[in-house]
Design a protein around this nucleic acid. Sequence first.
DNA 1: ACCACAATTCATCGCATGGTGAAAAACGCG
DNA 2: CGCGTTTTTCACCATGCGATGAATTGTGGT
Lengths: 199, 199
Amino acid sequence: MTGPPRRGRRPGAPDTRAAILAAARARFAEHGFASTSVRSIAADAGVDPALVHHYFGTKDDLFVAALELPVDPRERLAGVIAEGPDGAGERMLRVFLSVWDDPDLRLPLLGLARSVLDPSGQRLLRDGFVPAVLHPVGVALGIDRPEVRMPLVASQVIGLILTRYLLEVEPIASMPADDVVAVYGPTIQRYLTGPLPSA
Amino acid sequence: MTGPPRRGRRPGAPDTRAAILAAARARFAEHGFASTSVRSIAADAGVDPALVHHYFGTKDDLFVAALELPVDPRERLAGVIAEGPDGAGERMLRVFLSVWDDPDLRLPLLGLARSVLDPSGQRLLRDGFVPAVLHPVGVALGIDRPEVRMPLVASQVIGLILTRYLLEVEPIASMPADDVVAVYGPTIQRYLTGPLPSA
DNA sequence: ACCACAATTCATCGCATGGTGAAAAACGCG
DNA sequence: CGCGTTTTTCACCATGCGATGAATTGTGGT
């Protein structure tokens, strides 16, 4: 594969890059995009701010580099679809919880979620997550009026994520995943297959 | 009542104050606290930035002045309590919707909600709204384990408010209030009086 | 007309931010 | 060693921010 002599990555100390990425992830996760300064990230990484800009470009570039998700969330939802609409609410919920409890995904997701209220994140959620991730699941499940039902699902999932992981409202934040599924599962299920007004 | 000669408010043009307040409300509602600059507010009001600081003090002072709610939200919830737990979910929902549809409250509430993810707003919601507004309602309703049930209610209400008024996810954003109540009422009701895990 | 006081503007200060380009230090290889 | 590349730092720039205090304008009361 490596045609030419492959001379990249010579010296033995480019883990600084990783340090910067880690610091960026932590900062973005805790304070969101707008309230995070490149300088603070550099300080956390013990590095000159210019170096940050040297490795990753602008602050936006750093943001997407730091918050890039290792896996496509849609893959994880495949299992939900396979078994049809019965119990799909509970299964979806388990997928979301397992994703958020994955240590590799936690910080990137927090970073994205923290920035959900400024314009870019707003569009990402409204024009990206709901129509590109959630809606297809509804279609694949074969439920009626997915364009109505999936936003309803989103409204509860967003509320849950927000209270559990961002605001850390007790006792939701420290509730075992099984209890969360037991409480919210029926809600999601009702939004998926229950009655709708003016149908 | 006015003991001394009452010499206040001499000239006939202090509606500039009101203009500043209106501009502040609009800006805060659209961009939140952090992303709003005093200068932009002054520009909107057609006024020098220093004047803003002259009337209202610091930016934080302006924020609380602009977002002061004309009424105590708890008053509006009184009617919900009176009739007991039956149908309380639907009644609570109607109260929240009527509050958010009140033109006088809309901008202040949006301003508060937009700032819900930075530390101050986070505390306001987690340590203020839930324990000081929602929890007492649960206690007054006489339901069991209100410290668990009311946060559940909060998680759905927050998700609904967010998708309907902040993110404006369709079709939730343009759904008639009656339909909203029909969809979410049973959910809230189940959180109030339905089964709980490990009880 | 004059004066006191409120309303408003001007000119700045100090600070933090994102970004840039050139210089310097560290390092591997021949 | 000494060269070339990479890594890292230094010294800046332009901008936008919140805030301050002095000056200016406007207005009403007497």
